[in-house]
């Protein structure tokens, strides 16, 4: 995988951390997942790899469809403010990515660029969940982490198991669908998808 391709995936991830509009973030995550599927198809060595690439693409399209529909069904009167300004969010995400790259030794993927991209996407996903208050952005944070891990599975020497790759894709879709059910109920209950309102349970 070329360095430019890895940077493209990382840039999409960083975009999710800093952008304001939910539709733009969904588009970025979808573009990232489709780029991963294209990478898998390009490097496919057999029918199993092609099936895995197809599953990645299908997962990206299903999630995109569900998330765009949800955005349309739960229009916010005004955008949910994040816990931090875009520049601060970006700085936190990049700092976390650098820390992870420093802490985690050579993973064993087929290129160092791919390893850095994987760690950056995991860090961006965690940063998105931690710094965004909009429930839909928190779901996108989890999808970002899974996209990073999908890239890791693609760049494993010898490849990952097809069954595991399909299982991970299915699990992510299931979790995202359940999250969407919760998002819609939270929106119906509070009139907004703002996770900051979920603060009744304290000890």
């Amino acid at each position: 995988m070329s360095g430019a391709y890895a940077w493209l995936l990382v840039a999409c991830g960083l975009g999710v951390v800093v952008v304001r509009r939910r539709t733009v973030a969904v588009a970025l995550v979808t573009a990232q997942a489709l780029a991963l599927a294209a990478l898998a198809a390009r490097d496919a060595a057999g029918s199993n790899d092609l099936v895995a690439a197809g599953a990645l693409a299908l997962r990206a399209l299903v999630l995109a469809t569900v998330l765009f529909v949800v955005v349309a069904r739960t229009r916010e009167a005004r955008p949910v403010r994040a816990g931090a300004a875009p520049l601060v969010r970006g700085a936190i995400a990049v700092a976390l990515a650098l820390a992870l790259t420093w802490l985690v030794p050579h993973i064993g993927l087929d290129s160092r660029d791919a390893e850095r991209a994987v760690l950056a996407l995991v860090a961006f996903g965690i940063a998105t969940v931690a710094t965004r208050r909009a429930t839909l952005f928190q779901v996108l944070g989890i999808v970002l982490v899974e996209n990073g891990l999908g890239l890791a599975a693609l760049r494993l020497p010898g490849g990952a198991s097809l069954a595991i790759e399909l299982g991970v894709a299915l699990d992510l879709v299931l979790v995202a669908l359940v999250a969407v059910v919760f998002h819609e109920r939270i929106f119906a209950e509070f009139g907004t998808g703002d996770a900051a309102l979920l603060r009744a349970l304290r000890d």
């Binding site: 994987v118 995991v122 996903g125 979790v175 349970l201």
Partner: peptide, 21 residues
Amino acid sequence: ALEAGWKYLILTSLGLGVALL
């Protein structure tokens, strides 16, 4: 219950993402 379910879903999914890494 929505708050509890949401926290559970997000935190454990994120944790399991780290486990998958």
